[in-house]
Design a protein around this nucleic acid. Structure first.
Length: 499
RNA sequence: UCCGACGUAGCUCAAUGGUAGAGCGGGUGGCUGUUAACCACUAGGUUGCAGGUUCGAGCCCUGCCGUCGGAGCCA
């Protein structure tokens, strides 16, 4: 019995007879030769079955795509095969002959793909993204593990809090209404006073009725919490973690990023220290004439780009009419499809821009930064940027008031570059009992409802803080995607819970 | 919640208010170096649903359903 070899490792077995187990990703028939595209989860390779291998040839000849199979053959180098080597098949065992596989090599619409997400996962693009997802999660966890953090699993069911019940999913808990968690933070704070440095990683749920490319109703968040830490410590931690993630992806996923069409150059610039500015400085910046000039310049450039794309579209349509070969038409049609989408996006963007410019120019101190404001700011830097010290009125009750300026809190948001926006939100926590109770009352909350949380300020309170990083938004940025839904195996969005 | 676009064969899309079509996928046959293979033949439709206008509706109007996107809000 020949060795079972992963496709990824085939290159190390030249001249040997090996067995590959996997699925049929594609097939091309000649009269007396069949080319099989095999995938096994580690890679893709080409199998060649010649007619003189009578039994194998008969099995391969009309095998439907996505059938599962075991093939044995000789590995040989061949420049014509993707990956540089191929398997000369000697025997082929069909484990299961598939029925018509719904996802074909031709382009599909997003609705169809989402409806078949359980099968779409087998395609190259989803597997590339999911592999990168694994690396990002692993890099985060390794980062914390290497620094003496303890993983704490916080509860998913949380008692009915007064805050923002509208954006939470209610669950019937033996007759009582409870909610799916929105953050592990309050529980994590307790654990941090027990173990010093802790983190949690789990799903969180938001019932916001948002149908945009940045929203999921179920997403994953990694949240560290550190005792004896102040805002600067929290910022340094976030900076280190983001750098570690990006570094790990660059080191392991050159091919995956290329498959996704992600330019790695902007990722290589992700080096500490990240620029920092205070909320007040950000507000100044948004209102400044310099920003206005810059935005007008960008707008003019984008309008020119838009015109260029429209022209390109016209040229493509002409080429399409002249194209004879099916594959030429396919290629042109695919390019045209992408181009039309890009044009639509940019058109909308260009249309919204004057409004966003006015919003920025009229930005009032005290408001939270809007999505468009974040985009404007993040585009002014070539790496992630921290915005700190937001007005207390715009932020959560648990954030610590700044000693020098009681109007603001010791918090930070990290904005990803290239217009991707917020991926991290964090703060130093209010560690004084009276200040915390006062902040709750200001927000219309009842301190008695948070009695156990307030205990943390009654028994050995210390300065502490932490943050939460949204895994899917971070991945959207790192992978250079347009939509967050591709970064999670089975996305839950407004209006979709299948499959 | 509001605004917009879309809904035609399994899929991706065509079709001045006038006989519903192509490519892919499926089936059959052919081809020993294919790379989203190619060539020939073939099956496949209550045009999302319900009304309305019209001699005539896939196309126009109204309502509903569904999908996608945007705004607000958010990680």
């Amino acid at each position: 019995m020949p060795d079972i070899v992963a496709i990824r490792d085939l290159g190390a077995h030249h001249g040997q007879t090996v067995t590959v187990r996997g699925w049929l990703a594609g097939r091309r028939n000649g009269g007396k030769i069949v080319f099989l595209t095999l995938r096994d989860g580690t890679g893709i390779c080409q199998g060649v079955v010649e007619a003189r291998q009578t039994e194998a040839f008969a099995a391969a000849d009309a095998l439907p795509r996505e059938s599962s199979l075991v093939v044995t053959g000789t590995v040989r180098p061949d420049a014509r095969a993707t990956g540089g080597c191929e398997l000369a098949v000697e025997s082929l065992q069909i484990l299961h002959a598939a029925a018509d596989f719904p996802i074909t090599p031709k382009p599909h619409g997003i609705e169809f793909l989402m409806e078949h997400r359980h099968l779409w996962l087998r395609s190259r693009r989803p597997t590339a993204i999911l592999r990168i997802r694994h690396t990002v999660i692993q890099a985060c966890r390794r980062f914390f593990d290497d620094r003496g953090f303890t993983l704490i699993d916080t509860p998913i069911l949380s008692p009915g809090a007064g805050e923002d019940a509208q954006t939470l999913f209610p669950v019937d808990y033996f007759g009582e209404t409870v909610f799916l968690t929105q953050t592990g933070q309050l529980y994590l704070e307790s654990a941090c006073l027990a173990l010093g440095k802790v983190y949690c990683f789990g799903p969180t749920f938001r019932a916001e009725k948002s149908k945009t490319r940045r929203h999921l109703t179920e997403f994953w968040m990694i949240e560290p919490e550190v005792a004896f830490a102040e805002l600067d410590d929290v910022i340094a931690l976030a900076e280190g973690m983001v750098c570690a993630c990006v570094e790990a992806v660059l080191a392991k996923h050159e091919a995956d990023l290329a498959l996704l069409g992600r330019d790695p150059a902007p990722l290589r610039r992700v080096q500490a220290p990240f620029p920092r500015l205070t909320y007040s400085a950000a507000a100044e910046r948004l209102r400044s004439a310099e920003t206005r000039r810059q935005l007008e310049g960008e707008l003019a450039r984008d309008r020119a780009q838009l015109q260029q794309w429209v022209d390109r579209g016209v040229a493509l349509e002409q080429q399409l009419q002249q194209a004879r070969k099916v594959w030429e038409q396919d290629k042109l049609q695919a390019e045209l499809h992408v181009l039309r989408e890009d044009i639509e996006d940019l058109e909308r963007d260009v249309q919204n821009r004057p409004k966003h410019m006015d919003l920025a120019a009229a930005f009032e101190w005290g408001k939270d930064l809007g999505g468009s404001d974040e985009t404007i700011l993040s585009r002014q830097f070539d790496r992630p940027v921290f915005v700190t010290h937001y007005p207390a009125v715009a932020k959560a009750f648990y954030m610590k008031r700044d000693a020098d300026d009681p109007r603001v809190v010791c918090n930070m948001d990290l904005l990803a570059p290239e217009g991707y926006g917020e991926i991290i939100g964090g703060s130093q926590r209010e560690d004084r009992l009276d200040a915390l109770e006062a902040a709750m009352r200001e927000k219309g909350l009842t301190p008695e409802d948070y009695n156990w949380y307030l205990d943390l300020r009654r028994y050995g309170s210390v300065p502490h803080g932490g943050f939460g990083l949204g895994i899917e938004r971070t991945l959207t940025w790192i992978c250079g995607l347009k939509h967050v839904r591709e970064t999670i195996p089975f996305p839950r969005t407004l209006g979709r819970i299948y499959p």
